[in-house]
Amino acid sequence: MFERWRAKRRAERHWLLLRPAACAEGVWQWRRLPGTEHGDWPPPAHYVQDTVALIMPSAQCSHFQVPAPPGLKPHEWPLLLEDLLQQPAEDVQISCLSKRAGSLELLVVERACVQRWLAACETLGVSPDYLWAELQLLPVQAPGQIVEWARPEGRCLIRGADNGVQHWLVWPEVLGELPDGWRPSTEEMAGPWPSRWASLSRLPNALERSDKRRPKARQRALPFSRTQLRLVSACAVLALCWGALMLGQFWQQVPVWKAQVEAVTGQVGSAQQAARLLSRLQSEQTDWRSRQQQIVELEQAVAIWLDRQRDWGVSGTYFDGRTLRWVLSGSAPPPALDHWQNMARAVGARVSVEANEKMSLLTLNFTLDAQP
């Protein structure tokens, strides 16, 4: 009965989504759910009585999936990102979207932006109960599946991976075609708002609030009868027993997790030190995998070009960990510099060309830039 009541309440709730303008001179936009009504601010007056959610523009948010030791507190989350953040930790707001075994899904946004948006909401006469990123509105994807939301500001995509991990990509139109691995078979949706939605009532709330500011749904008294209260009390006792059992199993598992972390990082003195070492190792592995992919793509591109140029061959290749060098020999005139620059740009690298006309040699130096 309780579950039916909760489902009915969720079904009856109306949401008013409010999105800030992309620039200071722009107009804020709104969207009502369920329904199809949307437009520029202001909406009809009675819509403001709905549950209000402030939607952060995707370009203002950063999304991370980082390894994390068990028991990490919220104030320790910045330690996981200290090598990735471009500003001091106190200048950003970090929210946890999900927790999985050994990792956290974190959403990062500049604190000044959030405060500016909330101040603007007060000026507009609304008080948001929820704070979400635009990409949270899109439905969760199964492994290997991609959902795309095309808008004038750019494309928002979510790609599912193993263990329920969700990868986000915000791709401005000025960058052209989507990168490999991010091209869906068909365009899923287009327009100022998605046509398919996640379950809004289940989305993690990124709004930092005091005890005086709670969602309207929590302020309403629950109309329980005495029998229902007894059932709820019995469920609470069972949940307490189950929680005690799980807590005991958790403490038994802590030495195993610690040994697994130290097998990777070596002996550590604290959880913070382990988090920093794990973050650094992940960054190094990501950087190396990116360079390996760049090398493979460059080798394929050069091989295709050599197949078409019978007057050219390879005299040697060298790689020092960052720069991939090809020494080509041939009797035909070499291509223009633009040819090699386009080849390098396609894989996110930079190139310099050295020609030795006496020896009929052409040296290509591809500098591989690490990808985030």
Results as ranks from 00 to 15, higher is better:
E82A: 15
P44C: 06
K99C: 09
D50M: 10
L104C: 10
A45L: 07
E110V: 08
A119Q: 15
H46G: 04
A101F: 05
C96M: 09
Q65L: 14
L106E: 00
F64L: 01
L106N: 02
P42A: 02
R111Y: 07
I94D: 13
V114L: 06
E90C: 05
G125A: 07
L131E: 14
L85K: 03
V48Y: 11
A68D: 00
Q86M: 11
K73I: 08
P78K: 09
L118P: 03
A59I: 09
I94G: 09
K99G: 12
Q93L: 15
H75T: 11
K99E: 15
V109P: 01
M56P: 00
A89Y: 05
G102A: 07
D129T: 08
G39W: 01
L106F: 03
S103C: 12
A68K: 00
V114Q: 02
P70Q: 13
H46W: 14
C121R: 04
F64N: 02
L81I: 04
I94E: 13
S95E: 02
H38R: 06
L72A: 00
P34Q: 01
P34A: 00
C113A: 15
A89K: 04
P70K: 13
Q87G: 09
C61Y: 04
S95W: 02
Q86A: 15
R100Y: 00
A53I: 04
V109W: 00
W41T: 02
D129P: 02
P67K: 11
P128D: 14
S95Y: 02
L81H: 04
L97C: 06
A89H: 05
E82L: 14
A112L: 13
L33W: 10
P69K: 09
H38L: 08
S58P: 01
Q93G: 08
T36P: 01
G125C: 06
D50V: 09
V66T: 07
L80C: 02
D129S: 14
V114W: 04
D83S: 09
E105G: 10
A59N: 09
Q49C: 11
C96I: 05
G125V: 06
Q65F: 15
G71V: 07
S98A: 15
C96D: 04
L33I: 07
A68M: 00
P78H: 08
K99S: 13
I55A: 06
L84G: 08
P43S: 01
E76Q: 08
C113M: 13
S103R: 15
L85I: 03
S95L: 03
Q65S: 10
T51G: 11
Q93H: 12
D50G: 07
H63S: 06
V66Q: 12
D83Q: 09
V48A: 12
L118M: 04
C113K: 13
G35Y: 11
V114I: 12
W41D: 10
L107N: 08
Q93R: 14
